[in-house]
Design a protein around this nucleic acid. Structure first.
Lengths: 239, 239
DNA sequence: GCGACTTTGTGCGAGCGTTCACAAGCGGAT
DNA sequence: ATCCGCTTGTGAACGCTCGCACAAAGTCGC
């Protein structure tokens, strides 16, 4: 995705950690913090896997990728594992985050404790609506979107969070990229186009609901109790 | 955790649509609605794929799963495809949704237009805090969590959205399942245990940020410019 | 010191998802 | 009516992911 492909295995090795593993590391980290708070010093892969809702073999393979070794016959040292995962995820430094769009969702995000809890600091709040500029929120003053460049530079922002309406998202995204932001978390219900080297992750509430709808629909069909509305599908999936 | 591999392939084949495809169908649907609003009657796989940010071959294979056929040499009929995907996702009926937890995030979710836009209707707002009970929000009155059973039965709720703090999530989840809800969208930062037959999808803002952090960290390492705070980390990860 | 027990780390096969490449099919021009 | 160009639908290959099963390695009890 970011490079010209003739070094695919090379890239895989240079990075070392598969995407699927990276996506699970934060889950492990959360479970470990809970265990640490409970005063537990070591944990077995079986126990941690149960807490994280995954298979224990998968957990062990995941952890093996980041070179953090447990002790056979005992398990993993909780504190050491927390440190190891945090380091792998780059959480041993504080990332400055800019939040664009201070509407309903933006307010909720600004007040969400999960941002500040691990290495993330909301460094700037921005909005295009002049009526919102100047508002105080989460210890910050909302600035106008035109000041994005300055705010990004001043606070060393490298992660942008887009919580604007969909029509504004692409332009905001372009501005963020132009300002030097290379990671974007997009809450707007649209697809963003970005140049190579910029990572975008999408959080879409509507899509999640639609996926649930599919499964619910399927379950209703399986129970033999068709939903009130007609549930017709002439199969003939001629594959 | 719950899938002991007894019927995993069975289920996949019974309906024919792979999970990865199901996750993309809502994206296609959104792009199609945009095209329809623009008055476009037909669309090629190449064009739709670009709008949705995927490979055109992948799009065609996805669409082939739901038996909706395009016309060779022309493309897909937009209206027909909208109908076909909506039907596959079960969006041709209205799903009643219960939202539990009317805090910051809950308010944002209740006001989010994306819920109502496609087949979803928030039928009940619930909270454990007596101070919040009685509040009017999005045309509804917030009820106490103890009335969950009644509300679920009365409105035929089959999808629950959990927007409570993490410590309360599992209990709320158990109550939802006991009330007959079989699909849950969880915004609380924790892993939920549910019996077989219940689907849970998780939306975790903190995890998404940590994944971005990993990639940002990796990119910084690749540029040969180590971040200033590489070696130091505040050991006291508060809270 | 030694044996038994526990737990990690991993080789391996199976399944899923993605992409390429191309034959089949359709509409429109001539 | 026929041919040409365009687009779909899909067979096949490849890489990624998962889970099993087991050897390696360490601890605990005596």
């Amino acid at each position: 995705m970011t490079d010209q492909g003739d070094a695919a295995p090379e890239r895989a090795r240079s990075r070392g950690i598969p995407d699927a593993t990276v996506a699970r590391l934060p889950v492990y980290l959360r479970a470990l913090h809970t265990l640490a708070d409970l005063g537990q010093a070591t944990v077995s892969s079986e126990e941690l896997a149960t807490s994280a809702g995954v298979n224990s073999a998968k957990l062990r393979k995941d952890l093996s990728h980041l070179g953090s070794y447990g002790t056979r016959g005992v398990g993993y040292d909780v504190a050491l594992l927390v440190d190891s995962i945090s380091r792998a995820l780059g959480l041993n430094q504080r990332w400055a985050v800019a939040l664009i769009g201070v509407g309903n969702l933006g307010h909720a995000l600004a007040g969400y404790g999960g941002f500040a809890s691990r290495g993330f600091r909301i460094a700037a709040l921005l909005d295009a609506d002049p009526h919102r500029v100047g508002e105080r929120l989460a210890g910050l003053t909302v600035r106008h979107i035109d000041e994005l460049d300055r705010e990004v530079a001043e606070h060393g922002v490298s992660i942008g969070v887009i919580a604007t309406p969909a029509p504004a998202a692409q332009e905001v995204c372009d501005r963020l990229v132009a300002a030097g932001v290379t990671s974007i978390l997009n809450f707007a219900p649209c697809v963003l186009a970005v140049p190579d080297g910029v990572d975008v992750r999408k959080v879409d509430l509507s899509i999640e609901l639609q996926i649930l709808s599919f499964h619910e629909h399927r379950k209703a069909a399986l129970t033999g109790l068709p939903v009130p509305t007609e549930d017709e599908y002439d199969g003939a999936v001629g594959s």
